[in-house]
């Protein structure tokens, strides 16, 4: 049995990984949704300065490692040409190995690296992992093809406005709302309602629906990203920046504000957030922007207060602008 820890890129590649492994005839087990015990373990046994999502991931590894024969930890170095994921994800299998003393035989890993070689590097990575189960390369490639199809369907479904979390656990979906906020941030923050303190539901209760970067067409995101003199070299951060720029330039009247969810020690987000904030400030007439930092010390009450204040601001601004409009229309 192979275990997949529920954390980091899991929320992006769950269907890909799961289908790939199952097509190879492997039984897959996913660690349970994040809970207090998992976080506590991650905090105790992780590196103290590492970002919160990695600590949570390490907690998931601990939660599942005794129940399974192998851990599935693909080294997702890059899944876009000329770009990288963050250094912590690059070193993740090594971190798990060294921190928990898990032997290399128990870790199924392979370097998926599309940075220089594109699709070739992608296939190489999955071939490397598939060889742990079968010698037939044809079988691995077929499994990968099926997995890619499943992944594509999954990404398409996300575009209709469903969050990965709801899709993975078949949880109740939220009813769409008329007014929306753009919720930016890594999927592993937005989609883990335990560590983000159910932020989507909270926003929903306050009367707003959310749009995330996973719900936007990738090609359009990339187009707007080229407004920057030099995009960053982190794929997910680029998607976040591109989405922010897209909604900055192509106004959607239903969209009332931006919320950027970041984890405290996140390296890429510390710079990317600055770029987004400065671009928003440079526009003459913009929507409110809120950066919410999440880590193990974040309190639920504080988060709710900030959200409420932000919603008040959006509403005030809306009313203010509307009255402005009507007064200018009046003779």
């Amino acid at each position: 049995m192979v275990g997949i820890p529920r954390g980091l890129l899991f929320y992006r590649f769950y269907w890909l990984w799961k289908t790939f492994l199952e097509e190879l005839g492997v039984e897959v087990r996913v660690s349970p949704p994040t809970n207090k015990a998992i976080i506590r373990r991650g905090l105790t046994y992780g590196v103290e300065e590492i970002c919160f999502p990695v600590k949570v991931f390490l907690g998931h590894v601990m939660a599942i490692q005794d129940e399974v024969d192998f851990l599935f930890l693909p080294r997702m170095v890059s899944f876009h040409r000329r770009e990288y994921t963050c250094p912590k994800i690059l070193g993740l299998p090594d971190l798990v190995r060294n921190l928990f003393g898990i032997s290399s035989e128990r870790i199924i890993t392979g370097e998926v690296n599309m940075r220089d070689t594109g699709i070739w590097g992608w296939r190489q990575g999955f071939l490397e992992m598939g060889r742990r189960f079968t010698r037939q390369e044809g079988k691995i490639m077929r499994a990968l093809k099926r997995a890619e199809e499943a992944h594509k369907r999954y990404r398409e479904k996300l575009k209709t406005g469903i969050l990965p979390e709801h899709l993975i656990d078949r949880r109740e979906e939220v009813v769409p709302k008329e007014k929306k906020v753009l919720l930016l941030g890594h999927t592993y923050l937005i989609s883990d309602s335990y560590i983000n303190m159910n932020i989507v539901q909270k926003i929903h209760t306050l009367g707003y629906g959310v749009v995330t970067q996973d719900m936007v067409d990738e090609q359009r995101v990339r187009k707007y990203l080229s407004l920057l003199q030099k995009p960053s070299f982190w794929t997910i951060s680029n998607e976040i920046m591109g989405t922010a720029l897209l909604y900055l330039k192509e106004r959607d009247p239903r969209l009332k504000g931006y919320i950027h969810l970041v984890s405290f020690e996140c390296g890429p987000d510390s710079l990317v957030g600055e770029v987004i904030e400065r671009w928003i400030k440079r526009e003459s007439e913009t929507l409110p922007y809120l950066r919410l930092e999440i880590d193990e010390h974040t309190g639920e009450a504080g988060l709710l207060t900030r959200l409420e204040a932000f919603v008040d601001m959006m509403e005030w601004r809306d009313a203010h602008l509307e009255s402005n409009l009507s007064s200018s229309l009046a003779p």
């Binding site: 990288y84 250094p87 030099k230 960053s232 070299f233 890429p268 710079l271 600055e274 770029v275 400065r278």
Partner: peptide
């Protein structure tokens, strides 16, 4: 100097340029 990642150093220049421009 710039860079190609994945360390943040490669993006310093862009951020500093934005800040100094503002």
């Amino acid at each position: 100097a710039g860079g190609v990642g994945p360390c943040r150093f490669g993006y310093y220049g862009q951020i500093q340029r934005l800040i100094l421009e503002d």
